[in-house]
Amino acid sequence: MRIACPHCGLRDVQEFVYLGDAAPQRPDGLAATEAAMFEYVYLRDNPRGLLEELWYHGVGCRAWLVVRRDTLTHAIEYVGLAKSRKAGAAA
């Protein structure tokens, strides 16, 4: 596989570390419940088809990326920075 890092360009998947589903949002703060945290830590959908995932360009620019990938064909539709996603959501 190859992933088009927004900073570095198209790179071999060997340069990246996979984390998994990008959707879960950490329930921050002292008010967060154990149940919400349990869901965040452990519960994942396992879809056949498009999935937004977190990848880390560890052998490159060290950016965490959101990669929209088809789990069936490995076709990658979109790659963006995890950082801007969070900033965008907050704005």
Partner: peptide, 18 residues
């Protein structure tokens, strides 16, 4: 060392970019 660096980058970029 490398795992912690990756973790800290995760915490900064993914969890708390602000």
């Amino acid at each position: 060392a490398a795992k912690v660096m990756q973790h800290l980058e995760f915490c900064h970029q993914v969890l708390w970019p602000e």
